[in-house]
Write a protein that binds this DNA or RNA. Structure first.
Length: 496
RNA sequence: GCCCCGUUCGUCUAGCGGCCUAGGACGUAGCCCUCUCAAGGCUAAAACACGGGUUCGAGUCCCGUACGGGGCACCA
């Protein structure tokens, strides 16, 4: 039988980075075995369902390159893939459980339950449902029902003994049944709770491996007992460790927090990563490295490569925090792998978004030399600074004179450079065409015949910055006119 | 509080009883390269939470303690 896994988010907002990793691991595992990866939307909580969230979730998954074989948009033989469209099925099986003695109707009202909890707490007990309707006689139930009383359907959990949850990552986890109670399977609203829906859907969708975050470990005994009650074969279970805040304190927040630099940044929805200049390929690589390792000391790899080795049993069960600085490094590695053309293409939307006065041609000139300077695509803004604002206007003479050159030599060098750039043919106004000569000019006019000092002041004169992208590329990017204008200004400043 | 899970450099991890004087990566520091900044190369500092067992031998197995995380809804 082929492996089938699923990712089953609730449509309550954007894809959380932890959810993205859960989806990714599930996807990798299915694909490693040539199986299917299914997307299912769990919208049984009407109050929390957010309009448009399903589309947003799918967009985020697509952006990451995670493709599902069956799902709400593409369909499939086991559909529908949205739980709210499967009400009949849940209703039918919930009542099957009641009819077969595995579940019962509970007529307790919310106030009644609240009262019960208060009393338990006052008595120093753990608050828990006291199974008050578990053994209500059939005629009594019928009476309550015909009186129009609302009810939920609760599962008859075993009263004693143990339930063993076999987990692919952690091994067998044993729970004392006396610690558990009769959970609600079917709400008075006519919709199932997660526990009922997940078991029914996973069964009828032929899911072979249930993969999910480990916040579900404690409720897994319900699922195990439900499978037993239904007489269905239990899929393999794997609970992934949670991702912690960068500080290592607490679960990565679900709230959208503002993007901060350094260790404190906490990002949530995937599109936030996109907006902040991360490549999906890099993010996927990064995420795969949390809780799982490629092996052989390899850090950079494609999803296809990781698929060959990916095993659920190899996942590290310990919670991990997000190593964001490593994300930046990986992102930079992927940016450097891009061809200049591909990088230019990635960069242009960021230029357009900010409405910067920079052309695609200029980006293309700089792409090959700024790629290793970009941790994030948004770092391009810093690199482009000299094209966006002209800071050379505020330069003073003393800043344009290097101590190894002196004022005379500086003027001579700048003049030579100006004349050269002014006279050169268009065909030679290229990085190759100008670099050798400009370097030579620097060497001639400097004490120790090193080009460094002149190139440093030239950088300042031409970009207005002490730090800039490589000088020759910057000159070509700004164009002859701008370069001459700025050199003239420098010469005037030095002469004045 | 109760129940589950976890604990290797600051962080992500390798390690599945002897190959470990504990390996890699990020980050940090230094050096080299160099037109600045990067990138790249080299080097350095940096960890088996603690206490008991088991064993000829424990980072690796068992128990306890501490700490961390998760869960205790008609939410998922």
């Amino acid at each position: 039988m082929s492996v089938r896994t699923r990712f089953a988010p609730s449509p309550t907002g954007y894809l959380h980075i932890g959810g993205a990793r859960t989806a990714l691991f599930s996807y990798l595992y299915a694909k490693k075995h040539g199986g299917q990866f299914i997307l299912r939307i769990e919208d049984t909580d009407e109050k929390r369902t957010v309009e448009g969230a399903t589309e947003a979730l799918m967009d985020d998954l697509r952006w990451l390159g995670i493709r599902w074989d069956e799902g709400p948009d593409v369909g499939g033989d086991a559909g529908p893939y949205i739980q709210s469209e499967r009400r009949e099925l849940y209703h039918q099986w919930a009542h099957w459980l009641v009819d077969n003695g595995h579940a019962y109707k509970c007529f307790a009202t919310a106030e009644e339950l609240a009262e019960m909890r208060e009393a338990q707490i006052a008595a120093g007990q753990q608050p828990h449902y006291d199974r008050r309707y578990r053994d209500t006689p059939a005629d009594e139930v019928a009476k309550l029902e015909s009186a129009g009383r609302e009810y939920v359907i609760r599962f008859k959990m075993p009263l004693d003994g143990q339930t063993v949850v076999p987990d692919e990552i952690r091994g067998d986890i044993t729970f004392e049944n006396s610690q558990l109670t009769d959970y609600v399977l079917f709400k008075s609203t006519g919709l199932p709770t997660y526990h009922l829906a997940v078991v029914i859907d996973d069964h009828f969708m032929g899911i072979t491996h249930i993969t999910r975050g480990d916040e579900w470990v404690n409720t897994a005994p319900i699922h195990v007992n439900l499978y037993k009650a239904f007489g269905w074969e239990m899929p393999v279970l794997a609970h992934f460790p949670v991702i912690l805040n960068p500080s290592g304190k607490g679960k990565l927040s679900k709230r959208t927090q503002s993007f901060q630099d350094g260790d404190t940044l906490v990002l949530v929805k995937t599109s936030e990563f996109q907006e902040n200049g991360y490549l999906p390929t890099a993010l996927v690589n990064f995420l795969t490295n949390i809780g799982w390792a490629f092996g052989d000391d390899v850090e950079i790899f494609t999803p296809e490569e990781s698929m060959e080795r990916f095993e659920l049993a190899d996942i590290n069960p310990a919670a991990a925090s997000m190593p964001y600085s490593k994300l930046d490094w990986i992102n930079n590695q992927y940016i450097m792998q891009l061809t200049p053309e591909a990088l230019t293409e990635q960069l242009m939307p960021f230029i357009e978004r900010q409405n910067l006065p920079v052309t695609q041609e200029q980006i293309a000139v700089l792409a090959p030399v700024v790629n290793m300077r970009l941790k994030r695509l948004t770092d391009i803004y810093d690199q482009l600074q000299f094209l966006i604002v002209d800071e050379t206007v505020s330069l003073t003479a003393d800043r344009l004179v290097h101590k190894k050159m002196g004022p005379e030599a500086a003027i001579a060098a700048f003049t030579a450079a100006r004349d050269f750039i002014s006279d050169i043919d268009d065909a030679y106004f290229t990085v190759e065409g100008i670099s050798e000569r400009l370097r030579a000019i620097g060497e001639i006019h400097t004490e120790n015949e090193k080009a460094g000092p002149f190139l440093g002041t030239a950088r300042l004169a031409l970009t207005g910055q002490k730090v800039s992208p490589p000088l020759f590329e910057s000159i070509i990017a700004m164009g002859r006119e701008t370069a001459l204008e700025r050199l003239d200004r420098a010469i005037a400043t030095l002469s004045g």
